[in-house]
Simulated assay, not measured.
Amino acid sequence: MDELNFRKVSEEEFNAGDFLCVFSPNENARCFAFLSLNEVCFKLSWESDLLEPVIVHVKDSIYAIGIDLHFSLIDFKDCRIVKKFDLDFFLVDIEVVAGYLIIITELSAIKIYIDENYIKDFIAFPDTYVEHAIKEGVIEIQCSDNESLLIK
């Protein structure tokens, strides 16, 4: 399998890059990067200089990317954005479990069926996310109120 290359760039280099933009740049963007696989390249920008994007291989040439309040599925083979939407809460992590893509935010999770790329479920947390663990295809979310929930 080929290696995905993530490279931070200056705003000037970002603006000069003639690549499909994963997240639309805005006036608050302070970080810029190119994401490439083989000869295909995408560009992305985000606001928080304290965080790096979460990038997860989903299947074949498809990758999930999230940062701040933004999420995208991109296909390097076809050089296209498969799915793109804003999140209601800040991204924490992205996991691939049992045929589903799980987008974990501070207060919820979104479950996407990988083969069809449609949102299967939206799970609200009882309180703020603290940590998660994966055991036998099930994600256990621990929240700050000592409650936990399972995503199957």
Results as ranks from 00 to 15, higher is better:
1 M>L: 08
4 L>E: 09
4 L>M: 10
8 K>V: 07
9 V>S: 07
10 S>M: 11
12 E>D: 15
13 E>H: 09
14 F>I: 05
17 G>L: 15
17 G>F: 07
18 D>F: 08
18 D>S: 14
21 C>A: 14
23 F>L: 03
25 P>G: 11
27 E>G: 00
29 A>C: 15
29 A>I: 04
30 R>F: 01
30 R>K: 13
37 L>M: 10
37 L>N: 11
37 L>F: 08
38 N>S: 13
39 E>Y: 09
39 E>D: 15
40 V>W: 06
41 C>M: 14
41 C>P: 00
45 S>D: 14
47 E>Y: 03
48 S>Q: 13
49 D>G: 02
50 L>V: 12
51 L>F: 12
53 P>T: 15
55 I>F: 09
63 Y>S: 04
66 G>V: 13
67 I>Y: 02
67 I>W: 01
68 D>I: 12
68 D>C: 12
70 H>A: 11
75 D>Y: 12
76 F>N: 13
76 F>K: 12
76 F>P: 10
78 D>A: 14
78 D>R: 15
80 R>L: 14
80 R>M: 14
80 R>T: 15
83 K>Y: 07
84 K>N: 06
85 F>W: 14
86 D>P: 01
88 D>G: 07
89 F>M: 03
91 L>S: 00
93 D>A: 03
94 I>C: 05
95 E>V: 05
95 E>I: 01
95 E>C: 07
96 V>K: 01
97 V>R: 04
98 A>W: 05
99 G>I: 06
99 G>H: 11
101 L>A: 05
103 I>T: 04
104 I>S: 04
105 T>Y: 01
106 E>R: 01
111 K>R: 13
113 Y>V: 04
114 I>P: 03
115 D>R: 02
115 D>F: 01
118 Y>G: 02
118 Y>E: 05
121 D>I: 00
123 I>Y: 01
125 F>E: 01
126 P>R: 04
131 E>V: 04
132 H>M: 00
136 E>W: 04
136 E>L: 07
137 G>F: 07
149 L>C: 12
149 L>G: 11
